[in-house]
Design a protein around this nucleic acid. Sequence first.
DNA 1: CTTAGTCAAGGGGTA
DNA 2: TACCCCTTGACTAAG
Length: 306
Amino acid sequence: MRIGYPCINRSIACSGNKTFRLTSYTEKRLKETIHNNLDCLRKILQFNLEHNLLFFRITSDLVPFASHPINAFDWTEFFKPDFENIGDFMLKNRMRISMHPDQFTLINSIREEVFERSKAELQYHADVLDSMNLDASAKIQIHVGGAYGDKKGSMERFVNRYRELNERIRRRLVIENDDRLYSAGDCLKISDRVKIPVLFDTFHHQLNSDTQLEENLFCLIANTWKLNTDGIPMVDYSSPEHRGSSVKHASTIDIDDFRTFLGRTRPTDFDIMLEIKDKEQSSIKAARVAEGDRRFLVQNADSIKN
DNA sequence: CTTAGTCAAGGGGTA
DNA sequence: TACCCCTTGACTAAG
């Protein structure tokens, strides 16, 4: 079990998700921004190592406009040594890595041009992870997509489109249950067809589920991950803000809830991404709680040994 | 220096 | 059809 957080670290004085406006695009600006972002990513990983946080999500802003037609710059080649250096650091310290393209990446869109752009965007994400020489346990998580007034047909379209993707994308792709349309159960149905791993999001499950989170569902989801290639399952963990009626991500972790969650999911082993506003601060607290959990200790001992 | 509107990209829901 | 919502930080022009 590894614990981590997505994209941004607020404790160190650098921001690895810098970007700029399309209107101010120049190759020089692009180069400088990528350089800054890679440099900062390396610093964040160092911080994470020091705080026993071995799971991290790389921001999709790492390379701005990576899949946009305006970008003709061969950034994989230019920054090859930097990507490899970061990848070596991750491997050496047994870090688990994910990426999460945002809402515009839609495999099952009814519009062909949206699918084409999505493929380009997925290829960019795969290029980042490939450049770091990471194996197939480094994942790219997306949602199933829209419903378009015909959920069944849209799930079918996802299956067919998924089969069209190239192997470099497919080996990394996983689907995550969303908060409104596609539940964990829906994701399992798709997984039955194409054997894609399902990434369980606890918060989305609270908002959109056909069953309660019971042990059986959690086991079924865990079994969609092939341990020798996909690695242990990834789980996105967050909780609603307790005060107020709105459904927002909590500003900080509720340690008692987290402890309960750890208890309820035993003995299944998985990596946890904390989608909580204060990012690394909550992660550090969570890691402390998890130290009392066997799953966490095994991972720990392992990384010290190597 | 501070602030408020805006940013490549989609889709769902309501009036 | 028109408009607002999601969710988020940072960019950028305006004050």
